[in-house]
Design a binder for these strands. Sequence first.
DNA 1: GGGCCTCAAGTTTTT
DNA 2: CTTGAGGCCC
Length: 819
Amino acid sequence: MSIFDKLNPMQLEAVTTVSGPALVLAGAGSGKTRALTHRIAYLIEEGVNPWNILAITFTNKAADEMRERVDRLVKIGAESVWISTFHSMCVRILRRHIEYLGYSTDFTVYDSDDQRTLMRQVIKKLDKDPKQYRERGMLSIISGLKDKLISPEEYSATAAYDFRQRNYAEIYAEYQAQLKRNNALDFDDLIVKTVELFRAVPQVLENYQDRFQYIMVDEYQDTNAAQFALVSLLARRDRNLWVVGDDDQSIYKFRGADIENILNFEKVFPGAKVIRLEQNYRSTGNILKVANEVIAHNYGRKGKNLWTENGAGEPVEVCQFETAQDEASYIMKQVRKYVEEGGNYRDCVVLYRTNAQTRILEEMADRYIGQHYRTLGVNFYDRREIKDIIAYLRTICNGRDDLAVQRIINVPKRGIGATSLGRVSDYAELKGISLYDACCEAALVPGIGKAAGKIRGFVEQIEELRELAEEITIVDLIDEILSRTGYREYLMEEDDVQAESRLEYIGALKDKAAYYEGDTEDPSLSEFLEDIPLRSDQDNLDREEDKMLLMTLHSAKGLEFPIVFLAGMEDGLFPSSMSINSDDPEGAIEEERRLCYVGITRAEKRLVMTAARQRMVNGENRYSKLSRFIYEVPATLLNMQGTEGPSQRRREGNLSFGSVYDSGETGYRGKYSFQNGFGGGFSGKDSYSGRSDRYAENNSGWQNGGRKRSFGDRSWENSGDGYYPFGNDPWEKVFDLDKEKHEEVVRFGSKPVISKGSQIIDSGGAPDYGVGDRVTHVKFGEGTVLQLEKAARDYEVTVQFDTAGKKRMYAAFAKLKRV
DNA sequence: GGGCCTCAAGTTTTT
DNA sequence: CTTGAGGCCC
């Protein structure tokens, strides 16, 4: 019995395709990684030297997992197979050969934070208006250019006649020059420079072509033009390129992933064999049907039809709640129930569109399931305290790292401000030395004055630490940094609330250092620091730990869970209003739809999609309908559960609209314009004349089936009842009366709601207290109202608090209670 | 130099 | 609401 006997015919076909270009279209849960690893085993069995095999993934996690599986599958020679991410592969190549491109081999890799710092300096240096040329915008333009392998020179040539583009070109060129001056590469450069190297030095390319005769690429749908060029160069000679991907799971277009790479594979590699893996082993029949229905709404697909032999399973659940809090507590209660019935926390995951949603979910998780959850959120290495400590380590390790020095020279405060730093920096540039070296001779810097002594203090600290670093472990070195520089005290003083957790994170960094030192033959600080920019939180995801996970949909790619909650299934949130209102709504929404498909197909047994009618977004209450993606699924496939308990808000009665539209229970007369982008689903042009309650019942197939309805330019037939099955949303009643001002006060029950443009702000209305009344405030305690005046959208109240002094605030936010 | 204030902005992000 | 950056004043 061979390891290949368990493969299905298509998998076997994929695995035994040894030479020539091959495109494996692998649907979600169709055994993609299995095919990949088995193919490596097969190649070796067929006599291919493991040394000649290269497998490229996007994440460290995927690479680690593949490594492990190959090791298990292949007994001899597995360790010689090169399994790596695009980026770490490029780092390895560049550390050997980058001198051809005029960099030195000990280059630093800049992470996104470093990039922003550098970009800020570039914009300042070139004296560009920071309002018009924002760091983030510039970086994304440059990243987009690099993804397409467009150099500053090439871009500059095409941008000759456009003022704005000329400025972009100038910024790009300067940014690149600064990187080079710092002997640094950003993430995109890792790929770009490797391609440059291969193009510039044929013998190096040949060297790697000899080495990598069999190339495999995972998640091929996520490659960008630069990565494609890299792979093409390597595979050009032998044409043994085997790629696996799923066009329906391409969710990184916004980062330059070019779906065309997969759609055009056969054109670029004539004679390519195309193999489809369509049997899904992961999900129940119902879940798969829902996934297929949703993704069928996309155009220009390669076309796959996923099927499964698994049972139908339970229907997919859809639950809409009044608020995001209700939604979150429902999810957590469901998890708790599942565990009480014998399940494990680790079977469950909550997926959502934006990181902003984590707060409420975590709050409710704390309340209902205690510590049995973990959030994949901000990257560990992106935390401020971790970056600070790393900057110290970087400075100790290598004095030429200007960015690191800039970060810490005044953290904790040493009285070295922007002016002094600027003087030292100018001096450094003038003399062509590094910032740190300039600090070492601070006394010579013109106009430096008293700051010289302070800078000397900093240099002495670093020098001491540098000497220590020779003798002690990295773990101890971190402790020395904390105590000698006063960083620990600095954290304590800065914010006592977060200080403790920040110190815990630093503790975690020490753990990582300890692990590295224990695990490495000849540990060195520079090696420890070297690949930190290439590491992410995802790498340490521990699925063995019995904890429920919270993460964004993007982070969930490649994972699977018995029970998946898709939270925030609201139009405007998912798909995001950004996508709905983008220049290319069709394309942007298709990408969101693929993301939805990714989310749905993570589920093995149970899928619950939840939404809130009302959610705080950017401090404002936003009302939303269910996501359009839910309406793309025939209602018969879904178990619509309505809200958990009756809606308090709806019981308050109907809205009335200022003085113009004041109505009773039945609804409103007049012309209603639904706000642009608000709540999703309707564009600014959409309007309805008549009674709003009729709108809910009769217009556009709101609640009855068989009517055509549309969102923007797209329209489709309602395939049955079940649309908007949850009664009248408060949202329905909110609209924009005054188009000039885009601002109107409407009344929602007893509570006025103010709308502004496409946003809705909750307001407290007239306070139930007056001047002279005694009131309490959650934070400030008791006090006496001194003044109360009507402001533009709210009342402004001035209170003399007994202990907290005099405060002036908005009534709606102050939430004062009469005593 | 640094504290305080105001203002604007705010997706997703494997590396 | 939250965060960050720049402006202003001491």
